[in-house]
């Protein structure tokens, strides 16, 4: 078994991070907060107050993420084992990502003109919002943990040992 299988190398990880970052940013911009909290007043961010522009950005980033995940699935169907350098590590992350993809697909269909019952739409909207918040907070938690200096991590590890 090859434990160091990381196809695409760093660029694939960067693309994943880019897709997730853009999705979170453009998703947050779908809430009416960018203008209210002066974020759109920051240099270069005026576009974030335009819901249509950020919606298009959300679609573009979602297409990138879908392409990456499908590429990974395709490779996984051909390869066994190995460690990926990007993507969720555990069931929690994959569950959230799965929820986001499913509810996002429902919302995209609705935006394309397919009728979705109002109750179902409410569930889709709130699940998408909740899962996105949880995904963002989990990701930030993971990054914060990784950002700790190695020495601090080892000290914390040593302290936690009996």
């Amino acid at each position: 078994m090859n434990n160091h299988y990381a196809p695409g190398g760093r660029p694939a990880g960067w693309l994943y991070a880019l897709a997730c970052g853009l999705l979170i940013f453009s998703g947050l911009a779908q809430l009416p907060v960018m203008k209210r909290y002066y974020l759109a007043d920051l240099p270069g961010l005026a576009f974030s107050a335009d819901f249509y522009v950020t919606s298009n950005l959300h679609y573009g980033a979602a297409a990138l993420l879908l392409g990456l995940l499908a590429w990974r699935l395709g490779l996984a169907l051909r390869q066994t084992g190995g460690r990926w350098s990007w993507g969720p590590r555990g069931r929690w992350g994959w569950t959230l990502l799965g929820l986001l993809l499913l509810t996002g697909a429902g919302k995209a269909l609705r935006n394309a003109g397919v009728f979705v019952w109002p109750g179902m739409m409410l569930a889709l909207d709130l699940t998408h919002l909740g899962a996105a918040m949880a995904f963002m907070l989990t990701g930030l938690g993971v990054l914060a943990r990784r950002g700790k200096p190695a020495g601090a991590r080892q000290t914390a590890l040593a302290r936690s040992r009996p």
Binding site: P7, G9, W71, R72, G74, L75
Partner: peptide
């Protein structure tokens, strides 16, 4: 993406 994955495009870097 699936076609690229199944065709092992960009899969050999590492």
């Amino acid at each position: 993406g699936l076609a690229a994955g199944l065709g092992r495009l960009f899969s050999k870097t590492r």
